[in-house]
Every structure is written in structure tokens, then in C-alpha cells.
Design a protein around this nucleic acid. Structure first.
Length: 311
DNA sequence: CGATGTCAAGGAATC
DNA sequence: GATTCCTTGACATCG
């Protein structure tokens, strides 16, 4: 089982995850790839072998009014291929997770079209790195728009019309408000898209009352033979949020700073015998992963097998 | 240098 | 129909 974290590296000051300068300063994928390679080196050092790449790695690449940014993948083809080889040598599992603005089932035609463009960018990026089928692109089901059944049908119909290179990468994750595990399993039935089980979202939004192990096992079964499935795990935030005026309780689906090791160990016990990788979503990012790994070791659970020293 | 405003983009609740 | 929240950091500008 591999443990991963998302996007931002906190364990080493100065490591950036993308070139986030604004358009007037001509940010570029070339710069981001320099950052990415430094992150790969850091991952190897820490023996972390799963990582979510920033979706902003290629700045403005799908911005409708900025065609000068649209060919960054082609402009970096050689470098992408080289970095992909390096990732494979490190046994690094990579993935991406487009932002909230990518909504495949939106009733607005322009939002739908923009989503297709953006998903295609993600697929082309991973293809250009020459990564295998474990390198997936994760999205949510989208909105309900007052008629969830129609919204689900729209997702399925549009999924089936996506370019093949997008369909090969796309997986769907249950969310905390609209698309439950049952709903994304329905989407899988219609589309074949594998399901990423998100543990916290499921705890917060499970209208059908699944047993955890059953829910996980059913989601894992949606993945093709030979591809290790992946789940998301996070612990809820506990400390109050400080807003403009005063403090308020954390919302139940917000990510905490760290992963609660006992809770995680309990989850793994429930999932005994099932095989999957785990993407950790904690605000302390890699620091949370490293701490969790140590705490599990202290509990006698040496879960993370990583071959990152090869290469 | 520190404080503050801003960033491409959506959806849903609220008024 | 317009506003605010969600959530977030870091860039960019201004004093």
C-alpha cells in the first residue's frame, strides 16, 4: 500500500508546486517542471511514492482569452517525457484533481465545454509523461441543479462522449453534499469510470447507510484488473474557524491539519484483505504523511511499502 | 517591509 | 437578480 499527499510540499521550505505568477509575467510549464523535478527528489529522499500534481502546473493553458499559453505541453514535450521516465523509475504513483470549476454535468453549455477542454489538458499532460493507467484524473459528480437524476444522466451521457484519452484517465469521487457512494457507483455502472472512495466525504454524506467495508470493497471493484485502486482519507478539522467576526464551528467535511493515526488504523483494520493506495488529504500535507507513518510504525503497523530507493 | 487586495473559472443558499 | 460562502495561498501593489 502506498501513501500519498496532495500538491504542496511543506517539509522543505522553498519547494514550489507550480509557477503561480500571473499572466502578465508569462508563467510557464517549463518553470513548473523544474519545481516538479525538485519535488520528485524530495519524495525519493523521504521515500514517499505517491503524489498529486498541481492542476495549475501549466498556467492558463485552457484560458479562453490567452492562446499564447495553449501550447505549453507541446513546448515541453521532451522535458515531460524525461520527468515521466524519472517518475516511473521511482515507482511514483502520480495523479491530478481538477479544481471545483471543472463541472462535467453543468447545464450551462459553456461550462461543460470548458470542462472538456480542461479534462483533455489533464489527460494530455499525463500522456505526455508516458504514465501508466494508475495515473488518474479525479473529479466529482458535479451539481444536482434541482433534479439529481437528470444531473446524473447528463454526467453519464457526457462522459461517454469524452475523447478516449480522457476516458482512460477519468475516475469519479463521492463528495460531501451531492453525489454519495451510491450515486458514483451508479455513474460507474453507466460509464465504466472507476470510483475513488473518499472516507471523510462518506462519513459526512451517506444517505444509504453503507457499512464502511462494504462501501470500500464495492468501490474498489470498479477498478480494472491490474490497476491498484486508490482511496482518499482525511480527518475532520476540530478547531474552530476564525472568521471576520468571531469564531464558528468547523464544517464537518473540512480537512484537519493531521491524520488521526488511531482512526486510520481502525479504517485499515476494517479493510483488512483489500488492496489499495491511499491519498491523504491533510492541511499539513507531507508533514502529516510522515507523522502518520511514524505513528503507525509505533503501533506496530508498517503499512507503507515503497521502492523509491530504486532508480 | 508589512498590510491589503486580487486571482480565470462554479454552485448553491440566501435575501 | 445580486450577494455571499465555500477555502486558500501566494502574487502584486501600495503606503
Amino acid at each position: 500500500m502506498r501513501l500519498g499527499f496532495a500538491v504542496k510540499v511543506l517539509g522543505r521550505p522553498g519547494l514550489k508546486s507550480d509557477d503561480s505568477r500571473r499572466w502578465m509575467n508569462s508563467p510557464h510549464l517549463r518553470v513548473s517542471l523544474g519545481y516538479l523535478e525538485a519535488i520528485f527528489d524530495y519524495l525519493q529522499e523521504r521515500r514517499i511514492c505517491m503524489y498529486r500534481i498541481s492542476s495549475n502546473i501549466a498556467p492558463y493553458i485552457t484560458h479562453p482569452d490567452m492562446p499564447q499559453f495553449h501550447r505549453q505541453i507541446e513546448e515541453c514535450a521532451g522535458e515531460l517525457e524525461r520527468l515521466g521516465r524519472k517518475a516511473r523509475a521511482l515507482n511514483l504513483r502520480l495523479s491530478m484533481h481538477p479544481s471545483q470549476y471543472i463541472v462535467l454535468n453543468s447545464p450551462r453549455e459553456e461550462v461543460y465545454q470548458a470542462a472538456v477542454k480542461d479534462l483533455d489538458y489533464h489527460a494530455r499532460f499525463l500522456d505526455a509523461m508516458g504514465l501508466g493507467p494508475e495515473a488518474v484524473v479525479v473529479i466529482h459528480g458535479g451539481g444536482a441543479y434541482g433534479d439529481k437524476q437528470a444531473a446524473m444522466e447528463r454526467f453519464a451521457r457526457r462522459y461517454l462522449e469524452l475523447p478516449a484519452r480522457v476516458r482512460r484517465r477519468l475516475v469519479v469521487e463521492n463528495d460531501e453534499k451531492v453525489f454519495s457512494v451510491s450515486d458514483v457507483l451508479w455513474l460507474h455502472e453507466r460509464t465504466g469510470a472507476p470510483v475513488v472512495f473518499d472516507h471523510l466525504h462518506h462519513r459526512v454524506h451517506d444517505p444509504d447507510g453503507w457499512q464502511t467495508r462494504e462501501a470500500v470493497a464495492t468501490c474498489l471493484a470498479t477498478w480494472p484488473q491490474g490497476v491498484v485502486p486508490k482511496v482518499h482519507f482525511s480527518s475532520p478539522r476540530t478547531e474552530p474557524r476564525s472568521t471576520g467576526r468571531g469564531e464558528s464551528d468547523p464544517l464537518p467535511w473540512q480537512h484537519g491539519d493531521w491524520i488521526d493515526a488511531r482512526e486510520f488504523a481502525g479504517f485499515l483494520r476494517e479493510c483488512e484483505g483489500l488492496a489499495f493506495d491511499v491519498m491523504l488529504e491533510a492541511k499539513k500535507k507531507d508533514l502529516a504523511l510522515l507523522r502518520l507513518r511514524e505513528e503507525l510504525r509505533g503501533m506496530g503497523m508498517d503499512v507503507d511499502c515503497c521502492d523509491a530507493e530504486r532508480g
